[in-house]
């Protein structure tokens, strides 16, 4: 019983961060139709900005209020300049998806190389609330508990935003059918850019929370993009609640596998991914 509780609580703690990263990619891919392979690079930049701020004496969690708007602006501008251009020149959505992905590949290399030039490839880490508290049968990291609480709070706030604001409704409409939403008077270019911006902001926030708990490196981004891809497939493309729940499910499964055989923790992502594609390709909350 203790083991199951350990796995459950440990999975929830790491799953919170996975949820946040995945909600961002879900917005970009599920709504914006850009499979942003550079999503993890926004996360990495967020982590390094946090590292830089904390080295100047700023509380790392305060970095969220700097990171989120900054990444939103970068993401918004990127979509309006690069991806909107590709979208309007593409003859159909399929061509836009493939060209958008290629552009995102380019973005991935550009961002990573800039980061390597600035910070090199050395791992960085800092100590923030690196102590433990007893939760049930075991001790758990205080910084991870705080990160998970932050991630859940941001997920819930974003869900309320989607459910109860005009902009949120416009995003949901665009997620269901972009063309029809456009015909109904939704400013699609603005809404899609906003989705991309929100996705980047969430990656930036996730970067802050990751830097609080784990070592960071300029090459860390792609690994999180892979995890987010598995989570959004599990949750259902474009489904924000699906990504939110999916993050926790993946967190619990991989923690369980790590208790049994740590060497298979990564293989577990791909096994889940393949099973999902075969059994339920639209995910648990996909339509």
């Amino acid at each position: 019983m203790d083991l199951f509780l350990n796995i459950f609580i440990g999975g929830l703690l790491i799953g919170g961060i996975y949820s946040l990263v995945s909600m961002g990619l879900s917005l970009q891919y599920g709504v914006g139709k850009v499979y942003n392979i550079a999503h993890g690079e926004f996360l990495m930049f967020g982590a390094f900005i946090t590292y830089w701020l904390q080295s100047m004496g700023v509380n790392p969690l305060v970095a969220v209020v700097i990171n989120a708007p900054l990444m939103f602006i970068v993401g918004f501008i990127l979509y309006r300049t690069v991806f909107t251009g590709i979208r309007v020149r593409s003859p159909n959505p399929g061509v836009f998806e493939s060209n958008g992905m290629l552009a995102a590949f380019g973005l991935y290399f550009i961002v990573q190389n800039i980061a390597v030039l600035i910070w090199g490839s050395t791992p960085y880490s800092y100590q923030y609330l690196n102590t433990s508290v007893a939760l049930g049968p075991s001790d758990f990291h205080l910084n991870r508990i705080i990160a998970a609480v932050f991630a859940i709070a941001i997920g819930v706030i974003f869900y309320i935003f989607l459910a109860s604001t005009r902009s949120g409704k416009a995003i949901r409409a665009a997620a269901q059918d972009t063309a029809t939403a456009g015909l109904m008077g939704v400013d699609i270019n603005f809404v899609l850019a906003m989705c991309f911006g929100f996705g980047a902001a969430m990656a930036g926030i996730a970067g802050t929370l990751i830097s609080v708990c784990y070592p960071i490196q300029t090459t860390m981004g792609l690994g999180y993009t892979v995890i987010a891809t598995v989570v959004i497939t599990l949750g259902g493309l474009g489904s924000i609640p699906g990504s939110f729940i999916g993050g926790f499910i993946i967190g619990i499964i991989t923690t369980g596998v790590a208790y049994w055989e740590p060497g298979l923790a990564v293989a577990a992502y791909y096994i889940i991914f393949i099973i999902l594609l075969l059994v339920r390709p639209k995910g648990i909350m996909g339509r």
């Binding site: 991989t254 923690t255 208790y259």
Partner: peptide, 17 residues
């Protein structure tokens, strides 16, 4: 003797054991 992958994100299970 426990092996870990390069992408390991959580060392808790190993340290607890």
């Amino acid at each position: 003797a426990k092996s870990i992958p390069v992408t390991i994100a959580d060392m808790d299970p190993i340290i607890n054991e």
